[in-house]
């Protein structure tokens, strides 16, 4: 089972674009010429069109949009990766326990998930952020707490069918501990499903983070994230389009390549 067997053109395009984005973002400190957060640029540099000097233009404070897109990408991707990772871990264990034991425990655990899922994520996030304050850490916590349930449902469904398979009967018949059956025999078998789901989920998280920053409760100024940049630029549309356009394109490229990769991985599962 090697990823080189994936013959989807989309997958390879997505992977290359994503690698390129990650490469740019990781080495952003070597690429950029201007500090992304410093505002005291000369007044004539404000709201400049994209040019050789500022290739993505500048915003209302004269900050270089190119530098901010790269730095904002760090924040957006960091949040997305952590949220997806933590919710995959929590959701996998929750779902595996629910599915493996079944019965009333499964009923209780799954009704709790239903309860949490009945709230819109954005609404839940806004409430939490309003109560406990904003900040990157809080954003990660809130988004994790609101997105692990899908993983739990997915893993539960998978475990329900896996536990009927003879190799689980063999493991029980050999007297293995329940913790080992779940951790060593079930988990590796759901890994690819969870991984594929998480990749696609990452795109959603980037969008949600952008949306939260856009309404002003996500990333706080002067720190840049893609969503907050779009928020900054919205009052200058349609004339100073570059302030919103480039972070928008960055979100679009990232989420699309993540989706392409996710769909490519799905074919691997079959």
């Amino acid at each position: 089972m090697s990823i080189f067997k994936i013959q989807s053109f989309q997958f390879w395009v997505g992977l290359s674009v994503l690698c390129l984005i990650i490469l740019f973002i990781s080495f952003s400190s070597f690429i950029i010429k201007y500090d992304p957060d410093v505002q005291n640029n000369p007044a004539e540099n404000r709201l400049k069109k994209p040019s050789w000097k500022f290739c993505f233009g500048t915003d209302k404070f004269g900050r270089d949009v190119f530098s901010r897109v790269l730095y904002g990408g760090r924040i957006s991707l960091l949040i997305a990766v952590s949220v997806v990772l933590f919710s995959a871990i929590i959701g996998s264990f929750y779902g595996a326990i629910s599915g493996y034991f079944g019965g009333w425990l499964d009923q209780i655990l799954m009704r709790f998930v239903d309860l949490l899922l009945s709230f819109p994520i954005i609404f839940l996030a806004i409430t939490c952020m309003a109560l406990f304050g904003s900040g990157h850490l809080m954003l990660i916590i809130v988004l994790t707490l609101t997105s692990w349930m899908d993983v739990a449902r997915l893993v539960r469904a998978e475990v329900l069918s896996l536990k009927q398979r003879p190799f689980i009967l063999k493991a029980k018949g050999a007297g293995l501990k329940t913790s080992r059956i779940i951790g060593r025999h079930l988990m590796p078998n759901v890994f690819l499903t969870v991984f594929t789901f998480s990749i696609i989920r990452m795109a959603d998280i980037i969008l949600i983070e952008s949306a939260l920053s856009f309404i002003g409760i996500g990333t706080q100024p002067p720190t840049a994230s893609w969503g907050s940049m779009i928020n900054d630029g919205k009052s200058y549309l349609p004339f100073e389009w570059w302030i919103t356009f480039f972070p928008g394109i960055a979100i679009l490229c990232t989420t699309m390549s993540l989706n392409f990769i996710g769909h490519g991985l799905k074919t691997l599962r079959e």
Partner: peptide, 10 residues
């Protein structure tokens, strides 16, 4: 068990 392929964890 009966079927040795499905009785082993892949």
């Amino acid at each position: 068990l009966q079927d040795p392929l499905s009785a082993l964890n892949p």
